[in-house]
């Protein structure tokens, strides 16, 4: 069962790569754009920390660590679950029929059936950053935390995408929720205090995507580590539950396509 799903995932990755090769100029430009985007961000923080040295205990190294985690989890989820931000569109336009007609887990199938290989730009960038700031000793912890972040990002995407089941045209809303969460996650956790911090560790799980992992890598704390893992399990369960709840309301659609 699991092996079979992995095999299908692998085949889809191959198909996606062949598709990317169909438009190779576009592919190269997108990868470069991603890297450029990341470089600009780094330059910003280099200038910032050159002037202020630290933000609530966070120094440049911590910021680079945060960015290593974000780019890796964003990039990995783009490559392996490339449809994560298109759930709302797929539901809203009745394209879910295609997946429902095939004997695979619907949510899994939707997520993997597309792959954004330009996410590789982010992945490579993240790996380089990790090489710079990470000690070999914390490598395994780093990998676990990257996987945790990836799962949370995916869960946020599933949750926001599932809105389309309940509210119809939710494509823009869903995208904004995802990107909003992501941008909240790209600042040091220490800038958030009190209620804001609490919200970022619960309703909007931006804190668990990047802030908490960085704190854990700075100084390990078993309690926060297990809290993170627990949170991953919780939010992923909720996301899947909401998706399948929504699926019961799915009414397909008769949108006419030129593509058949």
């Amino acid at each position: 069962m699991v092996v079979n799903h992995l095999r299908v995932h692998w085949e889809y990755l191959k198909v996606a790569l062949s598709t990317a090769m169909e438009y190779k100029i576009n592919f190269i430009i997108q990868v470069l754009a991603m890297v450029f985007n990341d470089v600009v961000w780094i330059i910003f923080w280099l200038i910032f920390f050159n002037r202020f040295q630290n933000v609530g205990g966070w120094v440049l190294g911590d910021m680079l660590m945060l960015y290593a985690i974000i780019t890796l989890s964003y990039g990995l989820s783009s490559v392996f679950f490339g449809n994560r931000n298109r759930i709302a569109e797929i539901v809203n336009q009745g394209k879910l029929d295609f997946y429902l007609a095939l004997p695979k887990n619907v949510l899994f199938h939707v997520l993997i059936s597309r792959s954004s290989f330009y996410g590789l730009g982010d992945v490579v960038f993240g790996i380089i950053l990790a090489f710079i700031v990470l000690s070999l000793a914390s490598l395994s912890l780093f990998l676990i935390l990257v996987l945790a972040s990836t799962s949370i990002l995916l869960s946020v995407a599933i949750l926001s995408g599932s809105l389309a089941f309940f509210f119809g045209n939710a494509e823009a809303t869903s995208r904004n929720i995802f990107m909003g969460t992501l941008s909240l996650a790209s600042y040091p956790l220490s800038v958030y205090q009190g209620v804001t911090k609490f919200i970022l560790l619960t309703i909007i799980p931006a804190g668990f995507i990047s802030g908490v992992p960085v704190e854990l890598l700075k100084s390990f704390n078993a309690q926060w580590f297990w809290l993170t893992i627990g949170f991953v399990v919780l939010i992923f369960s909720i996301a899947t539950f909401v998706f399948y709840r929504g699926l019961k309301k799915y009414e397909s659609g008769n949108l006419m396509y030129v593509r058949t």
């Binding site: 394209k95 029929d97 295609f98 007609a101 008769n254 006419m256 593509r259 058949t260």
Partner: peptide, 8 residues
């Protein structure tokens, strides 16, 4: 399933 109007 073949859906005449949809991409498959």
């Amino acid at each position: 399933v073949v859906l005449g109007q949809k991409a498959q």
